[in-house]
Simulated scan of single mutants.
Amino acid sequence: MKRLALPLLSLLMLSCGNDPLPKPKGYLRLEYPNASYEKVIVPLPFSFEKNKLAKPISTVQTAGSTNGIDIKYPALKATIYLTYKEVKNGNLDSLLRDAQNLTQKHTIKADEISYKDFESKENKVYGMLYEIGGDAASQSQFYVTDSTKHFLSGSLYFYAKPNYDSIYPASEYLKKDIKHIMESVHWKE
């Protein structure tokens, strides 16, 4: 018995070491490539530049005419939907109100909605960018217009249940693309 007790006691003494330490929390690190842009010519009265990371755009037709563009980002599971409408018969106020109301519909789930004015006098492009924080369905929305003939609105949607913490990195990356779209819009005369 003594022969067995001494090795067991030694084993117990040696096996006791430092107290275990919890592992630090790990965070997902998402890195996206630097954006590289290319000009897009569409069958609408404007052109713009899109990120090369996006798939080739697809146009949306209603009533036989093209009035929308979908810019898909499969790697980010997101799409930027663009809708073009002609300004005519004094409908600019109505178009602006519709764009603003669409953004306001997200207040139910949004933690905050901030906006930034956009103006490019040399290209005759004026607009607004809305950034929506929280678990809203769309994280960014915008519109640009020349105030006389053209009106373009856009929305960013992800193909997943909105969880702000999870989609935040992709949302921030795509907000830069949206800003670039706004900056690169050129109206065709």
Rank of each mutant, 00 (worst) to 15 (best):
S155I: 03
P33A: 11
K52P: 08
F118P: 12
L44I: 01
A75L: 09
Y159Q: 14
L44V: 03
D98Y: 02
M128S: 10
A35K: 14
I57E: 15
D111T: 12
S58K: 09
P74M: 05
D135E: 07
H150M: 05
N34Y: 09
Y159M: 09
L102C: 09
I132T: 14
H106F: 12
D146N: 13
Y159H: 12
P56Y: 05
Q139T: 07
K39I: 02
E49T: 00
K116L: 09
P43Q: 03
I132E: 15
A35P: 15
F48K: 02
L28I: 13
A63P: 03
G133Y: 13
P45D: 09
S36R: 09
K50L: 06
T79K: 08
T145I: 02
N91E: 12
G134K: 03
F142W: 08
T107L: 10
D135C: 03
Q141L: 08
Y115H: 14
Y73M: 01
T59K: 06
M128P: 04
N101V: 02
A137K: 15
K50P: 10
G68M: 07
S58V: 13
S155N: 08
K52R: 14
P33V: 03
L28F: 14
P162S: 07
F158W: 08
T59D: 13
K39D: 12
G68T: 05
F118Q: 10
L96K: 10
I69T: 12
L95A: 03
K77T: 03
G154T: 08
H106E: 15
P33E: 14
S36I: 11
F142Y: 07
N91R: 01
P45L: 01
Y27L: 11
N51G: 08
I71R: 01
L95E: 05
L96C: 10
H106V: 00
P56H: 08
L129W: 09
V60F: 10
Y32K: 04
P24C: 06
I57F: 06
N34G: 05
N163A: 05
A160I: 08
I108N: 14
Q141I: 00
A136Y: 12
L76V: 04
V144L: 09
G90S: 06
S138C: 06
T62G: 07
T79I: 11
Y81F: 06
A160Y: 14
K109F: 14
Q141V: 00
G64Y: 12
L82C: 08
F118A: 09
S120T: 06
K77E: 07
R97P: 00
G90V: 01
G68I: 04
R29C: 10
G154A: 03
K72A: 10
N163C: 00
K52I: 12
V42W: 06
I80F: 00
S140I: 00
D93Y: 04
K39F: 07
Y84W: 07
